[in-house]
Design a protein around this nucleic acid. Structure first.
Length: 853
DNA sequence: CAGTGAGCGAGCTTCCGCTTGACTT
């Protein structure tokens, strides 16, 4: 075997690096961490100095045994995981898990995947930095202690299966507190005044628009101002022109890529990461999980060449950006195209769009500043002291703007900046028209997924690899929902001065419309309030920053990690115990008022099945009545009137075919019950309002669609005919319609009408699918059609019957023989719950082979 | 599949950070 085994974290990286190193090197990947604390228990021996109890992660057992084999036959094992805390720990865990002697290993690091960087790294090996490893152990142990001690408190005091953690709980806090801020926000209105001036003494009709430097708090003041303008004379008091510059944004990190892909392409952060991963695996971009804005010298040289070629020398300005993010570890380059001369790539629409964004951002970051000329024209008058100011902006040299401009989160950045006409100081102007428009102060914006990532990054909370998963966790736990909310119509006043007369009109606009924003749920608010009340230290926005400081000191060898953990844990654990015993259950209860009918108290709170309203208390002689809250209502905002309305269900709306129709809301949404059958209401039907006629309509419609469905399913499964002596069958299954041919199922897209589908069309469809699948086939065996070697998204794999198998390391997919394939299938057919079918099909494949022999 | 909301208790849930995973009837 090879003399040198190099282990990196990512398989795609392994492939690239193998090309740079000679034949003496084999490069493999550990697929990230290989050992961790067991998931089942806390797995920390608190009594014995917080000794972590590691195990090989269940999904890494195979990887480790494979690496172990290779390491045994190698002379030197080069541990080339990333140069950061986690990377150092991965190397250390590999050393332990693979049983490597210290004199057999060499630790190497590089920050960029370029040949020079790799070769230089190999020239400068070092040993494992145990202090850095200990900093990681402290991080790991702290997170486990927090997560696994806090979560059970929630199970007991709020509801089972909830979770809390150093990162996710702060993310939820941000969203809950932003919502509180919005709820408590009182909007003020004010009047902005914009004048349109005609320039005298010019042959052409030229006008400029200018805004008054002063805003008025009320309508009276605005009207008074316009009145004073009727007989005022306007003069240009000053024309000020000054040059300005605009610089490009630095290259992408994970966080900025997620933000820009969200603003410019509308991608959720998870989608951005999936697409970026695909681009990375295809070799189009560098690594997508990074906190660094640094570009390699090779990339800078490529950028320079490309910009010169496309736009000319004047557009080049090479920059070295420095990373300012809190806690950044800079193990990788910024996210950039691997080859900057590839302006576009082959791929699907999302891949192309994301690549385009990355290409533009990278190129623009190395281009000249844009040169602007900003002009301010001040217009004074002889009646009032307030001035009008017209602002203009001219681009003198576009520079990087030729390629790319970063978007901003505040959408109402509507300062119009036009080119202004030539004008001189002292010139007289006529006020043609003047509008005072009522505007309103805006509440702070709700978070989007991407703006939450930005906030977390600013606070130094979370890492590039966890931003997307964190956001999905807090949604999965139902602390937070991402949704759209309809706005409301708001009226506003516009006062116009024209032809010396003043007119008032009322206009209306839609406001408060939200798209894809994060809202806290009732559970989210309750959990947050509970945690902030009892565990303020951990919920503190600076908690992570504080412990990071300690981790840094551990990494520098100044403090011992177990001591740091101990001083954190003792007060923390005491608090956990105290809260478990003393604190009350958090139900989010709120007394809304008194029910006018029964004179009993009306409450809202969280019950076993979610948010509910309750009239009266549970006493011996009387039972309270209950009603669930509607979707979109929340414990924090519901009013007494809204709560009382909930008790109007179930409601008898009328009769149909001599039976009553009763409308209510069930486990699966609003329904009409009629003659012991249930009929779901549609989204647009309000169960509190829906009429008798509409209910009858719904019942009739359901009957028709049911009988139509029954009619259709009578025809299936349907044999369309035979193709090459094999039956072609159409059927409808759990996942929709599909064609069965030769033991393979082909799902049919909605565009094909399965009722009209004929044999010829079905065959054509199958052929199309097959030829697509054929592109993926690396190897087939005429003597056994059950066995195939295929090319998948994550490299080659073996398919035997219905089961997929990884091809063991050291074997070329295209060289596999049938016997080898069957051997792999036999060895890897795992016992277990799911595998009954796996085993049988693997056996079947083997036996079919023997039969043919 | 369609009112439930009490309390008991078995057995379960849970963290953050590094990586890619699989293809249904």
């Amino acid at each position: 075997m090879s003399k040198n085994l190099v282990i990196v974290e990512s398989p795609a990286k392994a492939k690239t690096i193998e090309k740079f190193l000679g034949n003496d090197f084999v490069v493999k990947s550990s697929f990230g961490h290989v050992r961790d604390l067991s998931k089942k228990t806390i797995s920390i021996d608190i009594e014995h100095n917080f000794q972590p109890q590691y195990e090989i992660s269940p999904d890494k057992v195979k990887v480790v045994s494979e690496l172990k084999k290779l390491a045994k036959s190698a002379e030197t094992v080069w541990l080339a995981s990333d140069e950061d805390r986690e990377g150092e720990a991965i190397s250390w865990h590999l050393m332990e898990a693979l049983d490597l002697k210290e004199n057999k290993i060499k630790r190497i690091v590089f920050h960029e995947i370029t040949k020079t960087a790799i070769l230089e790294a190999v020239e400068n090996p070092r040993s494992i930095d145990i202090n850095l490893v200990n900093a990681q152990q402290a991080r790991r142990v702290l997170d486990r202690l927090v997560g696994y001690e806090l979560s059970p408190v929630l199970w007991k005091k709020v509801k089972p299966a909830l979770s809390a953690g150093r990162v996710q709980s702060v993310a939820v806090r941000l969203i809950v507190e932003r919502e509180d801020e919005i709820r408590n926000f009182t909007s003020n209105s004010f009047f902005r005044v914009i004048g349109i001036f005609d320039i005298k003494n010019s042959d052409k009709n030229i006008s400029i628009s200018a805004e008054l430097s002063q805003r008025f708090d009320n309508k009276q003041d605005a009207i008074k101002f316009l009145n004073d303008c009727i007989n005022a004379n306007f003069t240009v008091a000053d024309v000020e022109t000054k040059p300005a510059k605009k610089s490009p944004a630095p290259p992408f990190t994970t966080s900025t890529l997620q933000q820009e892909a969200s603003r410019k392409l509308g991608f959720p952060v998870a989608k951005t990461m999936v697409v970026a991963q695909q681009l990375y695996e295809s070799g189009f971009i560098t690594y997508m999980r990074t906190d660094s804005v640094n570009l390699s010298n090779m990339a800078l040289a490529m950028a320079k060449k490309e910009i010169e070629h496309l736009y000319g020398e004047d557009y080049v300005k090479i920059r070295k950006y420095t990373t300012k993010t809190k806690g950044a570890q800079e193990a990788h380059e910024a996210i950039r195209p691997t080859y900057l001369n590839n302006q576009s790539i082959n791929g699907d629409a999302s891949q192309k769009r994301l690549y385009d964004l990355i290409w533009k951002r990278t190129i623009a970051s190395q281009m000249s500043e844009a040169l602007l000329e900003k002009t301010n024209i001040t217009i004074e008058n002889d009646k009032r002291k307030e001035n009008f100011i017209a602002r203009g902006e001219v681009i003198k040299f576009d520079g990087f703007l030729k390629v790319y401009l970063e978007s901003s989160d505040d959408e109402d950045d509507e300062n119009q900046k036009d080119i202004l006409p030539p004008i001189k100081k002292g010139e007289k102007l006529t006020l043609n028209e003047c509008n005072a428009t009522q505007s309103f102060t805006q509440y702070p914006p709700r978070y989007t997924e991407a703006s939450l990532v930005k906030k977390l990054e600013d606070l130094g909370i979370g890492r590039p690899s966890t931003y997307a998963p964190t956001i999905s966790t807090i949604q999965k736990r139902e602390y937070v929902v991402k949704e759209d909310r309809d706005g409301v119509i708001r009226k506003f006043d516009v006062i116009t001065l024209k032809n010396k007369s003043i007119k008032e009109i009322v206009k209306s606009e839609k406001t408060g419309f939200e798209k894809n924003k994060l809202f806290p749920t009732d559970i989210g608010s309750i959990v947050n309030r509970f945690l902030v009340q009892h565990f303020e230290t951990i919920l503190d926005y600076n908690f992570t920053a504080k412990v990071e400081k300690d981790f840094d000191e551990i990494a520098e060898g100044q403090i011992v990690w177990n001591d740091m953990i101990k001083s954190f844990y003792i007060p923390f654990h005491k608090n956990v115990e105290k809260t478990m015993i003393e604190s009350e259950r958090a139900k989010g209860e709120r007394l809304l008022g008194i029910d006018p009918k029964t004179k009993r108290n009306v409450y809202v709170r969280i019950g076993r099945f979610g948010a509910m309203a309750q009239i009266g208390e549970a006493k011996e002689d009387e039972k309270p009545s209950f009603a669930g809250l509607k979707k979109g209502q929340s414990l924090d905002t519901i009013t007494l009137e809204q709560a009382l309305e909930l008790f109007n269900l179930p409601r008898t709306v009328g009769t149909f075919e001599d039976a009553e129709m009763v409308v209510s809301i069930g486990r699966f949404g609003p329904y009409v019950r009629h003659d012991a059958k249930f009929y779901s209401l549609t989204k647009t039907d309000d169960p509190y309002e829906v009429s008798e006629e509409r209910c009858i309509e719904i019942i009739k419609a359901k009957r028709i669609s049911d009988s139509a469905k029954a009619e259709i399913s009578k025809h299936f499964p349907k044999v369309l005919g035979e193709y090459e002596k094999v039956e072609v069958i159409v059927n409808i299954g759990r996942y929709g319609p599909y064609i069965t041919y030769n033991t393979t199922n082909f799902p049919i897209p909605k565009s094909l009408d399965i009722l009209k589908l004929n044999l010829a069309e079905a065959i054509e469809f199958i052929q199309g699918k097959k030829s697509k699948n054929a592109e993926r086939i690396i190897k087939e065996f005429p003597e056994n059609s059950d066995v195939k070697v295929l090319n998948g998204r994550y490299g080659a794999y073996l398919k035997v019957g219905k089961d997929n198998f990884k091809i063991p390391g050291g074997r070329e997919a295209k060289d596999l023989t049938l016997a080898e394939c069957l051997g792999i299938a036999k060895d890897n057919a795992k016992p277990g719950k799911k595998t009954t079918s796996k085993k049988t099909s693997a056996k079947k494949a083997v036996s079919s082979k023997t039969k043919k022999k």
